[in-house]
């Protein structure tokens, strides 16, 4: 499986990372090197093996569905690059 520039561009888009067109060939090349390394996994007989979900056998704990926290709007917004009137502000999403 080899990654071409179009695939590299598609992956960058999915990852929401802007990559300039002239950087795509080198990126595709790097992907191919890493994927070539990963391809070794194809040699392993995994017939009948369950994919690991949790490294320690454990059932994730549940808690009561109640409010335990809140009323910290100022703290939640204190690191926002753009906060207005108690909200996070972003560029217009809906026309």
């Amino acid at each position: 499986m080899s990654i071409d520039q179009n695939t590299a561009a598609k992956v960058a888009k999915l990852a929401r990372i802007k990559v300039d067109d002239d950087a795509l060939p080198a990126l595709a090349q790097e992907f191919n090197t890493i994927l070539g390394f990963i391809e070794q996994l194809g040699e392993v007989d995994v017939e009948g093996v369950e994919p690991m979900v949790s490294v320690t056998p454990m059932r994730l704990k549940r808690r009561a569905d109640v409010v335990t926290d809140g009323d910290q709007q100022d703290k939640v917004l204190s690191n926002a690059p753009d906060a207005r009137e108690g909200f996070f502000a972003v560029p217009k999403v809906v026309e």
Binding site: I38, L41, G42, V44, V46, V49, E50, P51, M52, V53, V55
Partner: peptide
């Protein structure tokens, strides 16, 4: 890739 890697991890 991902599921195969998780199986290898189990091994």
């Amino acid at each position: 890739y991902y599921n195969r890697a998780r199986k290898v991890r189990a091994l």
